[in-house]
């Protein structure tokens, strides 16, 4: 089995079968990451370029580790060290990297659509590691992997996604992924953070968090971009936290065995109370661990090595 595609730029373009194939492939790599010698030769001789236009520690490190555990050569490019500052276009820079025979380009970019634009312009495989507010497909895949690992069935699973959905690529990718697999998705946040026509993506919108959390199996918290306070999306962090912060009391509204997820980095005490982040319900660190396995799976499937 293989992915019949050059790139992974979005969840929206994946079929449910492709999603399941990636998750199943990640299963075997999860086993590898548990070994004493966490390395397999699957991508030996391949070059993976991490091309990050936005600061990111976790995603970049996760991709780097994933590539290294597959024995690929890894290069990290970031704007400060690259020619972007010299006015070279994204496409030109990428073509230069490609000319050095990069097999896979992992792109993080502040502009929605950057990964698709790049994928159309280069022969290398492109993996979207987050493009603006558009998508962050590997984040959604690792979230799915984590849910599946906790033996949850996607069909009929009730998932609340809470926070600034308008400006969240994590939310979009998860909405596409979960709805494709038959989960029931509730979008929760102030109306200023719910983008236009969101219901048409097959989700139910709630402004009242307590109502939204009743009976859910999973609570996915989004990181609040604190700098957005000045842009009239919410009055104060204090009020946001009171209305949409996940507290222990609120967690009790969900199913007793509900899971709490967060893509990180966490604003403790803002969108999530410390005791919730550290509770048994929290799978935040499992997400991070699984991120490496899922990215190994994606790199492997796109490398044509299988």
């Amino acid at each position: 089995m293989s992915l019949k595609r050059k790139d992974l730029t979005s969840i929206a373009s994946l079929s449910p079968d492709e999603i399941m194939l990636i998750l199943e492939t990640a299963d075997s790599f999860k086993e590898v990451t548990g070994r004493e010698i966490k390395k397999v030769p699957a991508l030996r001789g391949k070059t993976v370029v991490n091309f990050f236009f936005e600061p990111s520690t976790r995603t970049r490190t996760s991709f780097e580790l994933a590539a290294k555990r597959l024995s690929a050569d890894v290069i990290n490019f970031s704007p400060s060290s690259s020619s972007i500052v010299k006015g070279e276009s994204l496409l030109d820079t990428a073509r230069n990297i490609e000319a050095m025979q990069a097999d896979i380009i992992v792109l993080r970019h502040p502009s929605a659509g950057a990964a698709e634009t790049l994928a159309r312009g280069v022969k290398s495989s492109v993996i979207n590691a987050g493009d603006g507010w558009h998508e962050h497909p590997t984040q959604a895949l690792l979230d799915l992997f984590t849910l599946r690992e906790k033996k949850l069935e996607f069909k009929g699973l009730r998932v609340a996604i809470v926070g600034d959905l308008a400006h969240s690529r994590v939310a979009r990718s998860n909405i596409y992924a979960l709805t494709k697999l038959g989960a029931e998705v509730r979008a929760v946040g102030p109306p200023t953070m719910i983008p236009a026509c969101l219901e048409k993506l097959g989700v139910r919108v709630y402004y009242d968090m307590d109502e939204a959390l009743r009976g859910v199996d999973v609570i996915m918290m989004l990181r609040l971009q604190l700098e957005r306070q000045g842009r009239a999306l919410f009055p104060t962090i204090r009020e946001y936290s009171r209305l949409y912060g996940l507290t222990a009391d609120r967690l009790r509204l969900a199913e007793p065995d509900a899971l709490v997820m967060h893509p990180g980095p966490v604003n403790r005490g803002v969108e999530i109370a410390p005791e919730v982040a550290d509770s048994f319900a929290s799978v935040i660190l499992d997400q991070v661990t699984n991120g490496v396995a899922v990215r190994m799976g994606v790199l492997y499937l796109l490398s044509g090595a299988n």
């Binding site: 929605a112 659509g113 603006g132 507010w133 558009h134 979009r172 983008p195 969101l198 993506l201």
Partner: peptide
């Protein structure tokens, strides 16, 4: 345009 497509693409809309 602000609407379904801008929401799907994650692009800032102009209402």
């Amino acid at each position: 345009n602000e609407g379904l497509v801008s929401t799907q693409l994650g692009l800032q809309g102009i209402p």
